[in-house]
């Protein structure tokens, strides 16, 4: 597939009469560049961009960037991408029109960073960039002359579970980690428990022999010390994982004292969780 085949689609939605209010022509309208590398731009991102554009009286440039224009599948991917892009553009336009925001749609191909850089210089007055899921922020930030935002949203909006997508992977990791750490504690508890039992059995089953040698004194003084070190290793680890396995562990917020948390918890009323899509700055 040659890049030429990727047609640039530029659609101007004519400004509605609302923008020409009071006959004063708005000379310089700023733009928000919304970038996606997916065929379908995620709706929360669209909604966020439309919301902000409406409030700031900006217009939107929506860019669908095909990052794999030369994908070796006989142009199937590119074709699908193009059709998805059409659908997505239509949806975006609908959403924007309802709020009186203009959307200019661009289809492009290449590396995200390069395309963004090119667009920022060719299209005038792009104030900031909003990136869709699946784009690495660093990639855009390194090339972009303007601030870059990613959008955090809950998947319920996208018709899935009510989980913040932005934290999704992190949270999964955290849960998985707590499961594995619990398993690890149990395993440690078991291993060191057996080791401890072995040390104790060895000493107490041979009491006479042990007492005879261990109390000889002199160089034999090292015997009790060595055994005690073994006990502190085996039994120390056992007791540590024992309490951990029971869920009794050190405070997770040793820096923030529990009392402070308590205070906060009682002082601040419980705020309803904000599930609206929100931007995250590129810092």
């Amino acid at each position: 597939m040659e890049p030429k085949k990727m047609e640039k689609i530029q659609e101007h939605i004519p400004a509605e009469t609302t923008s020409a209010d009071l006959g004063v022509q708005v000379k310089k309208i700023s733009y928000i560049l919304v970038v996606t590398r997916n065929g379908h731009m995620s709706e929360p991102v669209m909604e966020y961009a439309v919301n902000v554009a409406d409030r700031l009286q900006y217009n939107i440039i929506a860019a669908h960037i095909n990052t794999l224009p030369f994908y070796r599948d006989g142009g199937r991917r590119s074709g699908l991408f193009a059709s998805a892009m059409q659908e997505s553009a239509l949806l975006f336009r609908e959403k924007a029109e309802a709020r009186g925001v203009q959307v200019k749609h661009i289809g492009d191909a290449g590396k995200i960073g390069n395309v963004v850089k090119r667009l920022c210089s060719s299209e005038k007055r792009i104030e900031f960039i909003v990136i869709d899921q699946g784009i690495r922020k660093e990639e855009v930030v390194s090339q972009s002359p303007v601030p870059v935002f990613s959008v955090i949203y809950t998947e319920k909006k996208a018709g899935l579970r009510n989980k913040a997508t932005h934290y999704k992977s992190v949270e999964k990791g955290a849960i998985r980690m707590s499961i594995t750490s619990k398993k690890r504690h149990l395993r440690n508890c078991f291993t060191f428990g057996i080791l401890t039992a072995a040390v104790y059995a060895a000493v107490f089953l041979n009491q006479e022999l042990v007492m005879a040698y261990f109390t000889k004194g002199g160089i034999y003084a090292l015997l009790p010390v060595a055994v005690v070190f073994m006990v502190s290793y085996a039994h120390g680890n056992f007791t540590s994982s024992f309490w951990s396995a029971l869920g009794i562990e050190g405070s997770k917020s040793t820096t923030t004292k529990p009392a402070d948390i308590r205070k906060k918890a009682t002082d601040v009323p419980v705020v309803k969780k904000d599930v609206r899509p929100r931007a995250e700055v590129n810092v």
Partner: peptide
Amino acid sequence: AYYGTVDI
């Protein structure tokens, strides 16, 4: 322990 007084 040098004097052998530790009861392990």
